[in-house]
Amino acid sequence: MEEDAGRPGLRERKKMRTRQAIATAALRLFAERGYEETTIADIAAAADVSPRTFFSYFPSKEDVIFAEIDDRLAEVAERLRRTPGESPMETIRRSIVAVLEAIAAEHRDYGPVQVALILERPALRARALQRMTDAQDAIEALLRELCPGISEIDAVAAAGIAVGGMQAVVAHCRREGYDPLSMRTALDRAVDLVEHGLVSVDALSRPSP
Rank of each mutant, 00 (worst) to 15 (best):
A41Q: 06
L100M: 15
I43D: 01
H107W: 05
A116C: 03
A46C: 08
G85A: 07
A41I: 01
R131G: 15
V49W: 04
V113H: 00
E75W: 06
D70I: 14
R82H: 03
G149E: 13
G149N: 12
K61Y: 11
Y110M: 09
A123G: 13
I43N: 07
L100Q: 13
A44V: 04
P148Y: 03
L73P: 04
V97T: 04
D137E: 06
P51I: 13
V76K: 00
A74T: 12
A47M: 08
T53E: 05
L142D: 08
E62R: 11
L80Q: 02
T91C: 02
A126R: 11
R127T: 11
A123H: 13
A105V: 02
E145C: 14
A104W: 00
G85Q: 07
V115P: 05
E78T: 03
A105R: 05
G111E: 02
A44M: 01
L73D: 01
A74I: 01
V64Q: 00
R81T: 08
A104H: 01
I118V: 15
V64H: 00
F66G: 12
D134L: 10
M132V: 11
T53P: 10
A46W: 04
L146S: 03
S87I: 10
R81Y: 03
E86H: 04
R52M: 15
M89P: 06
F54S: 07
Q114V: 00
I103F: 03
R121Q: 10
T91K: 02
T133H: 13
S95C: 14
R79Q: 09
A77G: 15
A45I: 04
E75P: 02
E145T: 15
L146G: 03
T53A: 15
M132T: 05
T39L: 08
P59C: 03
E101W: 07
P59N: 05
L100H: 07
Q130K: 09
L73G: 08
